[in-house]
Design a protein around this nucleic acid. Structure first.
Lengths: 204, 204
DNA sequence: TGTACATCAGTGAACGCGCGTTCACTGATGTAC
DNA sequence: TGTACATCAGTGAACGCGCGTTCACTGATGTAC
């Protein structure tokens, strides 16, 4: 074998295919995840993929998981950047950062964002990411728990609080990507997001 | 021509194709809109469509408009069913009905709902439907204006109020269709929606 | 340490499908005289 | 009222594409003896 040739066995073809498919999703969303193209990018024949995934849906599912994890990771980063103070002000700021991170991810990586929610219809939505770390929903829930602990949110209003919070930021992302805000300027979007977070906070 | 044969000229092929495509969208969302299948269903050769639409995108766009109109229509119906009283209670109930209708549409006709927001990327989101009637966003705006008139919402809080309201219901639809609520029971969804509407109301 | 052999992870070719779109054509319609 | 002809709205066949998936196959690897 001359230098530069790849060995016959790839070594970690499964992950390489997922990585390539993640890049496809980034560029074009879930529909852009195509077995043949992923194989092409890895430099392997297009049927080699079937040694590692029973069908295209399995590859798609793996990519969904990665996208969901990436979203969770950004949320955790943005929250962690604000420290761990239990003051009322701090817990509120961290809740806001949770929502801001969600929207930031959606706008920065719309392909991944869409893919994260393109879970095949025969599967359940997962609360936990594949590697067992908390998913976006659980991260949000933890922040809401923090509000209760800090005395910002009365305990009797805690149940179901995830719903308005998640719906708000998720819907805002839709507004900005595919809805009436999609031709808006960054300033307009920023103002809208601030108004949204204010309203969620008051509403809780 | 024997009885039962269709005439050579269809008469209103354009609308017939749109109708067929609307039905495709209902069954499978925007990706299910396929020129050949729509033609097939109308009973016409698949290239006849090109007498009426320059390309598939034009057909898709026409269907988007119809879906958006259908959503607007349901919202108007649900609002109208609550009468025209200007009492504080009435304007609030109508705002809630606006959001409820939005979610009702999304859950009852997910294919249409998704298609409504699948406007091709090179086009602007329309506030007004093709026939000039108000679109969902304008209907919502009118309800919010009603809140101000009735003295429920202070005028200085009116600007941008569409954002949290729309984002909330739009996001709730996403939650229920593709998110953590998609395996929830009807009761759970109902409770979640009530909580959401409460929060939007308080937040405004 | 060396060798036979089972097993695993790739390859190349092909099947069958459905799509969007274009071409040259024809049947139907309506208008000018 | 009748007829020639332009125009419009369809048809049938074909092009070219890319996809998911399967088949029989081969090269590489590792294990038993």
């Amino acid at each position: 074998m001359t230098a530069g040739d790849r060995p016959y066995h790839h070594g970690n073809l499964r992950q390489a295919l997922v990585d390539a498919a993640v890049e496809l999703a980034r560029e074009g969303g879930p529909d852009a995840i195509v077995v043949r193209e992923a194989s092409r990018r890895v430099g392997v024949s297009h049927n080699a993929a079937y040694r590692h995934f029973p069908d295209r849906g399995a590859l798609l599912e793996a990519v969904c998981d990665e996208c969901m994890s990436a979203l969770a990771l950004l949320m955790e980063d943005r929250i962690a950047a604000l420290g761990t103070s239990r003051s009322k002000r701090a817990v509120v700021l961290r809740l806001r950062a949770t929502g801001q991170a969600y929207v930031e991810f959606a706008l920065a990586e719309p392909g991944w964002f869409r893919t994260a929610f393109a879970v095949p219809p025969d599967r359940h939505y997962r609360l936990v990411t594949r590697d067992g770390r908390p998913g976006p929903y659980q991260i949000l829930a933890a922040q809401l728990d923090g509000l209760v602990t800090a005395g910002v949110l009365p305990a009797e209003r805690r149940p179901l609080a995830e719903i308005p919070a998640w719906a708000g930021v998720h819907g805002f992302a839709g507004l900005a990507l595919d809805g009436p805000l999609r031709d808006a300027s960054a300033q307009e979007r920023e103002a809208g997001l601030t108004r949204l977070l204010d309203n969620i906070e008051r509403g809780l």
